[in-house]
């Protein structure tokens, strides 16, 4: 019996979420007395695979097949299920990102498992197996029992964190037994967001709303983000207006994020917006309306003009760096 994580790679490199998954699996392995194993699909070098050992993964099973690069949901599901069978996985964990969300439900059916997505911590009980997650877009927390022997979970971003725990890794390959017909989609082109901190993975996010007045003022958001090594985000009307790209929109109908620090400039704090950001560890709001609901969700606030506060904040951050 084992705990299995699916570690996605991006051009052969793992992202932070993979190491968070590894940390989570190692802790769960300790709690249950089982082994923490990772499955990696596609071409990843051993030196990269070994990094998982720094977060407590003892064994990696890999299928170095480049066809996985097309991210075919059906093929990836089949492959993870084959790995799960081989290592007799009892709990299979994926990250709650686009790919994890796509694969986990398929995998649950294939492995006759029970699924809970976007869990926010270790199980509160193992027998019965109970995990918790945010529901109603952050308005409530649900404690959910999985009734099946095998469990599939996706882990919400930044909900567990990284835990270094060195372990020596054994790397073996496995045969997922796939044919060409398992890969049914043709990728025409891929555009990658480069040189930017990914919104889902960012420790700090700088976000702007309609109070920023126009797209022309976004250089301020970008400059602060740059200073802080942060990702940029926006409210829904901002992306609807075309001031910012759709993939930056956070909230109920956009991305759900939980960075350590979230800055909201000129965002009123509508319930649908908060649904996407309320699990941030610290929220800072700058709004000229002292009654804006964002202040109820914020930890620190300034009543004032975002367009005036931003340049000063950028300067203050620069100053502390130079100290």
């Amino acid at each position: 019996m084992s705990i299995l994580i699916y570690t996605e790679n991006w051009d052969g490199k793992f992202k932070k979420v993979s190491f968070e998954l590894a940390s989570y699996a190692a802790a769960l392995a300790e709690q249950t007395g089982k082994q923490a194993i990772a499955v990696s699909l596609g071409e990843v070098e051993n030196s990269e695979l070994e990094k998982l050992g720094q977060y407590g993964i003892g064994k990696i099973v890999t299928a170095q097949d480049k066809r996985f690069a097309t991210l075919d949901n059906k093929a990836i599901t089949k492959a993870i299920a084959a790995a799960a069978k081989q290592v007799q996985a009892e709990v299979i964990i994926l990250s709650h990102d686009n790919l994890g969300k796509a694969i986990a439900p398929r995998l649950a059916i294939r492995c006759n498992a029970g699924l809970v997505t976007a869990v926010t911590g270790l199980p509160e009980s193992l027998n019965p197996f109970i995990v918790h997650k945010n529901v109603f877009t952050g308005k409530a927390i649900a404690h959910i029992k999985i009734e099946k022997e095998v469990k599939v979970l996706t882990l919400a971003y930044n909900s567990f964190g990284l835990n270094e725990k060195h372990s020596s890794v054994e790397i073996t390959s496995f045969d997922p037994d796939l044919t060409d017909s398992d890969f049914s989609m043709e990728v025409l082109d891929t555009t990658k967001v480069t040189g930017k901190v990914l919104l889902n993975e960012a420790d700090i996010v700088v976000s702007g709303g309609r109070g920023m007045k126009s797209a022309d003022n976004w250089y301020l958001i970008e400059e602060l983000a740059e200073e802080l090594g942060a990702a940029t985000a926006c409210s829904r009307p901002v992306s609807d207006e075309g001031w910012r790209p759709h993939d930056e929109h956070v909230g109920q109908t956009g991305k759900i994020i939980s960075p350590n620090l979230y800055f909201a400039f000129g965002i009123s704090g509508a319930i649908q917006h908060l649904g996407g950001v309320s699990s941030s560890k610290v929220i800072v709001a700058v709004n000229k309306d002292p009654e804006a609901p964002i202040f109820e969700a914020a930890d620190y606030g300034i009543t004032g003009d975002a367009l005036k506060v931003l340049p000063e904040l950028i300067q203050a951050v620069k100053d502390t760096k130079n100290q």
């Binding site: 409530a140 404690h143 999985i146 009734e147 930890d299 009543t303 004032g304 203050a316």
Partner: peptide, 28 residues
């Protein structure tokens, strides 16, 4: 395959700490 055992409200947040507009350094 699953059942909800219990729902609860998220923990309430402490009051927002306000910083004056002309004291951005203090925020940092």
């Amino acid at each position: 395959a699953t059942s909800i055992q219990k729902l609860e409200l998220p923990p309430t947040k402490a009051a927002c700490k306000m910083v004056a507009e002309d004291n951005v350094k203090e925020l940092v």
